[in-house]
């Protein structure tokens, strides 16, 4: 797997720094980082599926939403405790992952992307129309049980989730399965021609992605204490996830985290100057420039810079 001591040292340093952060920054900044942590989880989830295998999903909130709604309905309507509802939500999201993998067995490219977009639209309509007594209809649900109180606790919860997901995915993707999934993204036929069942590999990628999306969605709902279909099944949300993964560095685990933090802070720092949707114009422009400068993302820029520093010393 090529694991070295400095890999773990880097992880430990990152986690250590992040855990000390509440001592250094304001509560407002912490609240921003909480969103960055959740966005990182969603971007990692998207990347496992789309960044690696090349099956670009435009409907990732479909999976996130299944996780979020499952636990929201269970806790709110059936008084199921959170410790039970979250694992159930993850499981149900993985079943949702099976639904997403079905078209991926037959079609790829833009057709697959469009179908995933349709999935998101479908669940958006469904939660509003079918059994609004359960889903809360167009208004969603509020007053859900929250896991934490206050910014600091919320920060630690979201950080723990993000670090566990990121470290786990990083470990798994460093094994040969990571190589195999990336190979699908490069040339699916040649993977078949190497004697590997691409169906099984895709199934693994989609289930892992769904598991993370379900976890992220469920924890997010119990952080916010509410759920609103319009914010969740929103094309802007889709693009934020995809752009975070892409400008951070697709097909890596660190990239989506960098991208998520970069985007979240960019949007927050623009807020005082551009309170409305114009922010997205700037953010689109920045993302585009970065992407044109280095399609492999910020992580690649950092790595190249580091290589230059090392070459000099």
């Amino acid at each position: 797997m090529g694991l070295r001591w400095y890999h773990f040292a880097a992880w430990a340093a990152f986690v250590g720094f992040m855990f000390l952060l509440p001592e250094m920054v304001s509560k407002g900044t912490l609240r921003i980082i909480i969103f960055a942590n959740f966005l990182a989880v969603f971007a990692i989830s998207w990347d496992v599926l789309s960044g690696r295998t090349g099956y670009v999903s435009f409907g990732h909130p479909f999976l996130i939403g299944i996780g979020a709604y499952t636990t929201a309905i269970l806790t709110k309507r059936f008084d199921v405790p959170v410790e039970i509802s979250i694992p159930i939500a993850v499981f149900v999201t993985m079943i949702g992952g099976l639904i997403v993998v079905l078209p991926a067995l037959r079609i790829k490219g833009s057709y697959f992307a469009l179908i995933t977009l349709a999935y998101m639209e479908l669940i958006y309509q469904l939660v509003q129309v079918v059994r609004p007594d359960l889903t809360g209809g167009t208004r969603g649900m509020s007053g859900l049980p929250t896991l934490t109180r206050g910014a600091v606790n919320g920060y630690y919860m979201s950080l723990t989730l993000m670090v566990i997901v990121a470290f786990g995915v990083w470990l798994v993707m460093r094994t040969r399965i990571g190589t195999a999934l990336s190979a699908i993204g490069m040339n699916e036929e040649a993977v078949k021609g190497s004697g590997l069942s691409v169906t099984r590999l895709k199934l693994f990628a989609f289930l892992l992605s769904a598991m993370i999306a379900g976890l992220g969605g469920a924890f997010y709902v119990h952080y916010l204490g509410s759920i609103a279909p319009r914010a969740l099944f929103d094309i802007n949300f889709v693009f934020t996830i995809i752009v975070a993964a892409l400008i951070g560095g697709a097909s890596t685990t660190i990239g989506p985290i960098i991208g998520a933090f970069f985007l979240t802070f960019l949007l927050e720092y623009l807020r005082p100057y551009l309170p409305g949707a114009e922010r997205y114009f700037i953010y689109g422009g920045v993302a585009l420039l970065l992407y044109m400068y280095q399609p492999k993302g910020i992580y690649e820029i950092i790595q190249q810079g580091w290589a230059r520093v090392r070459a000099r010393t």
């Binding site: 797997m1 798994v172 094994t175 040969r176 399965i177 190589t179 195999a180 990336s182 190979a183 490069m186 040339n187 036929e189 040649a190 993977v191 021609g193 190497s194 004697g195 590997l196 069942s197 099984r200 590999l201 693994f204």
Partner: peptide
């Protein structure tokens, strides 16, 4: 039909992989 972003070693690695997800994860190259 090479895997374009992979090294020669990684290209060969794909051919050597067992057709099992667990096998890929648990055993190194």
């Amino acid at each position: 039909r090479p895997f374009s972003d992979m090294t020669v070693a990684e290209n060969i690695r794909v051919g050597l992989m067992p057709d099992s997800v667990l096998g890929m994860i648990l055993k190194g190259a």
